[in-house]
């Protein structure tokens, strides 16, 4: 399935852009998983020091290998699941609406959307050292619709995105006023 079918695109509609979290915001997760991956090395080294015969024991050795194998596969699985959750948490901007796909975890997803002509105000903000260096931040959209506020978190080039949303909203308002 592609994105067009996923959002049930209307005939006159086209996808302008897809916004995801900035890749830099995924780096802390990579760092945590690297630490988790390095931990068994320390544990094995410590066990070697404390119990030198343990790891050559006929029973402990295969059990240990299976345990660490399962541990590393679990890390891979959690990393991949976290990436998928991170990657699928996105915003789709079309020339008619803004669709927020909120992927909370692997089995929890909320999709909400607002018509662009309902947009009243758009704010973009970049706070902090890393957001300033890598140019990412939040874009807050105030609406007159049932969902009063949309926040696009950690978007790349938030000021440019704000301008894009404002332009599209103005164009959609003109279309609706005809």
């Amino acid at each position: 399935m592609n994105l067009v079918r996923f959002i049930a695109k209307k005939i006159y509609e086209h996808i302008v852009t897809t916004v995801r979290h900035h890749p830099v915001t995924f780096l802390p997760t990579i760092f945590i998983f690297l630490i988790l991956a390095a931990m068994p090395i320390g544990v094995v080294g410590m066990l070697n020091q404390l119990y030198p015969t343990l790891l050559i024991n006929d029973l402990a050795y295969p059990l240990g290998v299976l345990f660490f194998s399962a541990y590393y596969l679990s890390i891979c699985l959690f990393f991949y699941s976290y990436f998928v959750t991170f990657y699928l948490d996105m915003w789709i901007v079309t020339n008619d609406r803004l669709i927020d796909v909120y992927q909370k975890n692997l089995f929890s997803r909320t999709i909400s959307e607002l018509d662009l002509y309902q947009i009243q105000d758009v704010t973009s903000d970049v706070h902090g050292l890393f957001p300033s260096i890598f140019n990412y931040g939040n874009v807050t959209i105030q609406t007159a619709g049932p969902v009063p506020k949309f926040i696009i978190h950690n978007a790349h080039r938030p000021h440019k995105l704000r301008q894009l949303v404002l332009d599209l909203a103005a164009e959609d308002k003109r279309h609706h006023n005809k």
Binding site: L3, F6, L106
Partner: peptide
Amino acid sequence: VNLAHLFHTGA
């Protein structure tokens, strides 16, 4: 399940 999510959402 992860792959199905990626496929289903066109990612």
